[in-house]
Write a protein that binds this DNA or RNA. Structure first.
Lengths: 344, 344
DNA sequence: TTGTAGGCGTTATCAG
DNA sequence: CTGATAACGCCTACAA
């Protein structure tokens, strides 16, 4: 059936033959601001059309070292917060002609190391990383040393010479705690987040500072750790409610955990919003729609994604300044779950 | 500072020099089942270690035509259903050494066309596609004609010679409608989904069949269309409740819309679960946690993702059978929002 | 303004 | 079992 053709992909050389010019001319004609006569350019355009030529980035990458792809490595795609963040990243990068490899580590550092390695093989020009629990600093710094810019997003691990774009966790937690204190709560718990994770450390710091300012000593039985899942939110609430002197309010590591805690509170017969307060972080869509709706800190994940992508683009563009730590503002959203909306 | 080195990446030739063999030997030694002496293989392994060599897929792709990447093009990353689907896809492909380009069309067909084109430039070996509203069949068939396998996932457009992996929408909708009929409802609405979209057409068909079997005529005022968002769920519920003879139950295009409708019902003073029934499709995590919890059809998005990825791998492996339409089973989950859990 | 030629890193062919 | 060498498709000095 087929004729003697060997290959099926159309290359520059085919276009060149069709247009009656050299491959160099075609290559130049395809680039915007190059010195090629309008006439030739038009002939090339027609030839491209006719042959169905498609640019081969692999060949270009081999030659130029640029793939125009970046990796976005996150810990949990099923968390709407990260979905929004990913969407922000993609919007910015897409507009600049970059393609995004979205990879989900599931918060497993071993898996993350393999994924980092794969991303490098695939020649990503840069990386946006929300590091998994227990991240191996070495595997990341190898990437950085290869000269590819890295931006840590939303969370970070220390001792890595790269930019960080994250919300101001400490300030947020302080504000949230102050609000609960103002509503009259004295026994306030802080539930979940894994030991040693940057977001927990920072949020716990803000919480401690606010308590200290109010003259309330820190009680470690009120601040249990736990992986950030909905189920653990429920679990940890039951845990702190079982102690001798249970809290009247809990701050959860994030909304997902708070929603789990909300469910558990309902099962325990607690009247959230009057007897008891539950608050979270992130302000995911579900937070406004739960019953009772959730008091939380609104973090605009999409804009964090956009900011991180923009910063990465700047680095790819040659910006060689010292690593920056960008803090994205957030604000308190008072809803029903703390009772504050009514009493205020 | 730096010495006279020109390039920074370590190539096969560097490893070869270090090991005192040829590049061809190194290349072979790095492949599993090849005829290379254990001794040489070991020398190569050490040299790789020492030089910090990293495989360059771009160069390999240029030579072999295989990138070991696939594209996953979905319509809405912020829908947990697709997040789960993506996670299933990634699990399977990752286990087979493939990398996934996850791309989000936002359900815009123009954007999708550009993204398809970019994916081709990046040399994906295959594509998993959940087509956007108004998909240009031509842009997809171009991809298929280039010899790359395509699998449509979850939704599909007609007249495309490729596999389809999707839930059995018609059967599901029929079962859901029958359940509502059994509970005594005679005026049942079907809210949302865009006109002409495969999932709406199929679900509406199942709904119509069940009504017909019960001798109830179809009333078009009860089946308004609308883009599948939470807000539209609320909007459409208000719309159908404003007509002369409003329904006593509504089936929503999917859970996200049902959750929006739930909120609107609450605002309208409807007692969902006793006076009024609201049901959805998908069984996203939120469905079990809403108050009242949502009666819905459980579709295991993750397993649809896995099945689709597996089918694509089979095609990449040379399976040239006729296009297949795989139907993934689903089942009814009765919860509070239809009142059925109590009455049964 | 356009053409020539060489090389990016890998794999496949074919000899040794 | 191993080595030399020629592609793959593109870009870019440099020459014309």
């Amino acid at each position: 059936m087929a004729s003697g053709r060997k290959k099926n992909s159309v290359a520059l050389v085919d276009v060149a033959r069709e247009a009656g010019v050299s491959t160099a001319t075609v290559s130049l004609a395809l680039q915007e601001g190059s010195r090629i006569s309008a006439e030739t350019r038009e002939r090339v355009r027609k030839a491209v059309e006719k042959t169905g030529y498609r640019y081969n980035r692999f060949a270009a990458k081999l030659r130029t070292g640029q793939s125009r792809t970046i990796g976005l490595l996150i810990t949990d795609i099923s968390n709407p917060y990260f979905a929004a963040l990913a969407s922000g990243v993609e919007t910015v990068l897409d507009a600049h002609g970059y393609m995004t490899f979205l990879v989900n580590s599931g918060d497993q550092s071993a898996r993350q190391s393999r994924q980092l390695s794969t991303l490098m093989e695939h020649g990503v020009d840069g990386l946006l990383l929300s590091p998994a629990e227990g991240t191996d600093v070495h595997s990341v710094s190898e990437l950085i040393q290869s000269g590819r810019p890295v931006v840590q997003v939303s969370r970070w691990v220390a001792n890595l010479p790269c930019d960080i774009v994250a919300p101001d966790n400490t300030a947020m937690a302080k504000e949230l705690t102050r609000h609960l204190l103002m509503l009259g709560h004295r026994r306030i718990g802080f539930l979940g987040g894994t030991e040693g994770r940057s977001a927990r450390i920072e949020r716990l710091a803000g919480y401690s500072q606010a308590l200290a300012a109010a003259g309330i000593p820190l009680d470690p039985t009120l601040t249990p750790t736990g992986a950030p899942t909905r189920d653990n939110g429920a679990l940890l609430l039951r845990e702190v409610m079982a102690i001798d002197n249970p809290p009247t309010a809990v701050i959860c590591y994030h909304d997902l955990m708070a929603l789990g805690a909300l469910r558990a509170a309902r099962d325990l017969g607690l009247k959230v919003g009057s007897d008891f307060a539950i608050v979270g972080f992130d302000d995911i869509t579900e937070a406004a729609l739960s019953i009772p709706s959730l008091t939380t800190v609104h973090i605009d994940a999409e804009s964090i994604g956009r900011a991180a992508a923009t910063q990465l683009l700047a680095r790819l563009d040659g910006d060689a300044a010292e690593p920056r730590h960008l803090t994205i503002p957030a604000h308190l959203v008072v809803r029903e779950s703390c009772g504050g909306a009514r009493r205020q």
